[in-house]
Design a protein around this nucleic acid. Structure first.
Lengths: 236, 236
DNA sequence: CGCCACTTTGAAGCACTTCAACATATGTGG
DNA sequence: CCACATATGTTGAAGTGCTTCAAAGTGGCG
């Protein structure tokens, strides 16, 4: 389904990569993979994973739980995303959950580090991808802090379209959207009930279509404008 | 006032550093410094700084502005924090503003990279500090998404006490707190009016004292409990 | 078929906002 | 050093965006 080299496609979108680097990435993705069913927890808060984990196929999310059961989704992961790379003996302060059936490749740090240092182009691409991830995280903070429910959801939809396009997972203005309304609520800091009402309004206004887990953004520019979406933070 | 080597103090709190590494940090901090008055913008959204900027003295904050004037503070910077290090040609998606008079040291990338690679201990300490910064960012997201006004403010106070302690900027349970109520509102996604009322409640309940820009946490464990604060994410 | 997860809608409530006014610090120029 | 302007803090009253509670409808899957 997804081309085997989602990672190569992502990295190449940041910096041009030569054939040598692309072959190296292929080799890396040939390492032991793991397939997970939807809704399976892959990494758990408190773990100290010793490998580099990269998502190759499917959607996943990062979440933090509070002791009283409240849960916040702090990010969505798409193919080519770095789920985690160990540093020192830092513990995971979040969990990673598959949202669809996924494929993850797990690379021993001992194989990953020389690989990166031997290919400066790849190192730079990884660094840029990391910076963009951080920018996305900041933008989520702005969303939760300053935006209305409509803006939060609209902004998320615009962001996802922009992230899915370069990896070939968008068809025109639409894409497969495996996130339930409950999860959408946990990502936007709203209640599922209110998410449902906002989605209804967006549909009634002809801005989006959402059926059978497929999201169509029918009027992108109108939605982007009302959600104050500016893609500048997603691409250097 | 602040010891000249706030950076050394911070890095050493992550990994033991030998005398050689400490001398190297001294040399680094001897590079051209800049002093800024309070409320001066240091880095501006859209900039492409070419140097590594490290905060040595004073408080600063990161903020993102929306086109309609709404503003979100996405983080507070304390002495020893890395304000920015350039990667590729990524643009800043946020601004950095001094909250007190500050001292910043700006190091050319050409001097910084060899310095890091020659001292693996420092590289590791920097990497851990970076990871903790990201964990803080995630925790802020959880705050804005899931927590009540009381919990947001209480959690922030607990976090700041924990961050200020290891750099010697806390006296017992108190510390200088240069953040205005307007800024506190912009950091917590609330209105200044409501921040004021929550602070009044905290005072009336004997949890905190806040006068003349000095914050006293009078009952830390009670505040931490009511704010669901768990310091695990701040230290490995 | 029947279960369970997800979606949808209504009605009532509340945490936080908005608006407005005043009080208190902070700073600045004459 | 005072007079004035401006930033910051404080309080009240009214409004609202979102939540909470409750119930019913829909769809996928063993």
């Amino acid at each position: 389904m997804t081309p085997p080299n989602a990672l190569a496609q992502r990295l190449a979108s940041w910096t041009p990569l030569d054939a040598d680097a692309l072959r190296a990435i292929e080799r890396l993705c040939a390492m032991p993979r793991r397939r997970l069913p939807a809704r399976r927890e892959f990494l758990r808060e408190g773990d100290r994973p010793v490998q580099v984990h990269i998502l190759l196929e499917g959607w996943a999310c990062r979440q933090v739980m509070l002791p009283d059961g409240r849960r916040q989704i702090v990010g969505f992961h798409l193919p080519g995303d770095l789920l985690w790379s160990p540093v020192g003996d830092v513990r995971l302060d979040f969990s990673v959950l598959a949202l669809t059936p996924t494929t993850v490749v797990s690379i021993p740090t001992g194989s990953f580090e020389p690989f990166v240092s031997q290919h400066p182009g790849i190192a730079e691409a990884l660094a840029m991808q990391e910076r963009v991830s951080q920018a996305i995280q900041r933008r989520w903070l702005v969303n939760l802090g300053q935006r209305t429910a409509f803006e939060r959801i609209g902004h998320l939809f615009c962001e996802l379209l922009h992230r899915l396009e370069p990896i070939g997972m968008a068809k025109g203005q639409g894409f497969a959207f495996p996130v339930t309304q409950v999860e959408l609520a946990e990502a936007t800091g709203l209640t599922p009930v209110h998410v449902n009402r906002v989605l209804r309004d967006m549909r009634l206004q002809g801005l989006i279509g959402l059926e059978n887990r497929v999201l169509q953004i029918l009027q992108f520019s109108a939605l982007a404008q009302r959600a104050l979406f500016d893609p500048g933070y997603l691409a250097p």
